[in-house]
Design a protein around this nucleic acid. Sequence first.
DNA 1: CACGTTGTTCACAGCGCGATCACGACCGCA
DNA 2: TGCGGTCGTGATCGCGCTGTGAACAACGTG
Lengths: 118, 118
Amino acid sequence: MQATEVESLRVGELEIRPREGLVLARGHALTLSVREFGLLVALASHAGRVVSREELYRLTWGGALRCGDRSCDVYIHKLRAKLERALPDQRFIHTHVGFGYRLDPGASHPFHTASTGR
Amino acid sequence: MQATEVESLRVGELEIRPREGLVLARGHALTLSVREFGLLVALASHAGRVVSREELYRLTWGGALRCGDRSCDVYIHKLRAKLERALPDQRFIHTHVGFGYRLDPGASHPFHTASTGR
DNA sequence: CACGTTGTTCACAGCGCGATCACGACCGCA
DNA sequence: TGCGGTCGTGATCGCGCTGTGAACAACGTG
């Protein structure tokens, strides 16, 4: 799945143009670094699916994720910060503990269950 | 039966993607822990049939169920809670006292069945 | 060279998860 | 009716996974 070959990826109000290195949030442009952009493209090209850190790293950095490497987490954080600044009312990147991350526009947050409500 | 090799399992309005660690309930994502997810996959890969605790434990935890271990019960409970929160009008996990659990979307009566029909 | 940006790594904080325990409800049975 | 076995369910606790800020090095530019 070569995301860089498509003209435009759409995830909710995000429009990503891989070949231009451009991201539009509700129409106006975001300023992302190369890594941030690569990560977003990697996520967007699997939108709605859970992507493991290994996979994200391979797609964005281009190698095997070394044990203990937290680069993904750090950049997920940076990406979240910028996305949230652009669209404060939405949540795009969801964490699936033990599995990876998922990019999803619609649902702000999946069901959350503490333990039978109190 | 290696459930992790199929793309997607469907049980009623549940869609389970073993390789992603993702569950969709009526289209939108659930947040399950690794154990909860493993258990659901174990049940789903035997949907409609009663699965013993020994079998569930072996499939999910990967070892023999020790005498007195209630892990299965506890996680069945957690799973039920999350499924019920997602789809309150349905019951998926049915208890067969003395035998085990059964995952089934439609049926609601867990009667002590000798299953005559079939 | 001075400076701002970016990429990488580290350290610490916070919280979710997994394993277990405890108690109570329920049921079949003598 | 008392007893033992089976389940449901809330609670506890240590640990690992994640979130997050910051330090530092590597560049690119004027």
